[in-house]
């Protein structure tokens, strides 16, 4: 640790350290996708109850993140991207992260069940269990398919949002889940192509570590080809309209172009191409992977924002007519 980090670690934890345990950036994505599922469900929910449901889903996601940081502190300490997290940096005790995770898990599931419905609460409980136990404790350290299967945890929030609004999870809700599920592998493998040294040092069997960069680039291309039809499927079921078709189609074409550049490039071949610890600051050799990683976030955001916009617009137009 650097001297300022040591000085900081000697102090009692600040409230901001506990907020950091909840991975607020991931929480914001969960809030966004869960809200999209809730709005797309088409059943108007009392705005206050809707806000409470979103709060419970966000806190549940934060709880699973805290459990992840408790269990993965040893791995996080060996990776440049994660060594500044509160537990490996010594700012928060591992036991505190565990306690926070358990308490917030129980509260979020119970409040969601009591306030909204127990089907949504059950889905939230399953999501927390899947991320904290199945992914964190089992898949992550065991198989190169860790983020493929584990991606289900990040893909479930729109289904929980839908279930909170209607008490059901129809095909359209699972389509939203499928979009995030299929998006996760190319997104994380693009990142891991230029952070694989971290994963190797930490003993995490990410695909570039176990199968090499060339195999990872091939996998990114195949999963990208599979992703685009899934992103277009909501148009076939009527969940997405013409604006969504345009965004998913044109955005998907750009996604495929960037994925092809990764496929035909040399990203991941050079030893540690990062210039700084930042996620986007890489040398020329890794730019194709960095570009796909950054664009994948924009693409997913645009897809869900368009669905959200179309349904809100449809609801407003319906209210006016």
């Amino acid at each position: 640790m650097t001297p300022p980090a040591i000085a900081r670690a000697a102090l009692p934890p600040r409230w901001q350290d506990y907020v950091q345990l909840l991975k607020p950036r991931v929480m914001s994505l969960v809030v966004f996708t869960a809200a999209t599922g809730m709005i797309c469900a088409g059943t108007p929910l009392n705005p206050v109850m809707g806000a409470i449901a979103i709060l419970c889903i966000a806190v549940g996601a934060g709880a699973s993140a805290s459990l992840n940081m408790w269990y993965d502190a040893d791995i996080d300490a060996r990776m440049r991207r994660t060594r500044g997290r509160p537990v490996p940096a010594g700012r928060v005790q591992a036991a505190d992260a565990l306690a926070l995770g358990i308490v917030l898990s129980l509260f979020s599931v119970m409040i969601l069940g009591l306030a909204i419905n127990w089907f949504a609460a059950g889905l939230l409980a399953f999501t927390i269990f899947f991320y904290a136990v199945v992914y964190t404790m089992w898949l992550k350290r065991w198989t190169a398919q860790n983020i493929v299967i584990g991606g289900l945890a990040g893909a479930l929030p729109p289904v929980i949002g839908w279930a909170a609004a209607t008490g059901q999870a129809p095909l359209d809700a699972w389509l939203l889940c499928a979009i995030i599920f299929m998006w996760t592998p190319p997104h994380f493998w693009a990142l891991s192509l230029y952070t694989s040294e971290d994963y190797a040092a930490a003993g995490v069997p990410m695909l570039p570590v176990t199968a090499g960069a060339a195999a990872t680039r091939r996998h990114i291309w195949i999963y990208s080809l599979l992703l685009i039809p899934v992103c277009l499927a909501p148009v076939a079921t009527g969940l997405g309209g013409t604006t969504y078709l345009a965004v998913a189609g044109l955005g998907g074409a750009v996604f495929l172009l960037l994925a092809w550049r990764v496929r035909s490039g040399r990203a991941g071949d050079a030893a540690d191409p990062r210039v700084t610890d930042g996620l986007y600051d890489v040398q020329a050799a890794a730019r194709d992977a960095r570009n796909l990683f950054a664009y994948s976030i924009l693409y997913l955001t645009l897809l869900f924002a368009t669905l959200l916009g179309e349904h809100l617009w449809g609801r407003a137009a319906g209210g006016l007519s």
Binding site: L11, P12, P13, Q16, Y18
Partner: peptide, 24 residues
């Protein structure tokens, strides 16, 4: 300062929880 900040955060959390239960 850190302790005071934590205490305020816990107080806000508790008041927020009471309001949440009231609204539900």
């Amino acid at each position: 300062r850190a302790r005071r900040g934590r205490n305020i955060a816990i107080a806000i959390g508790l008041v927020g929880f009471v309001v949440l239960v009231y609204l539900v």
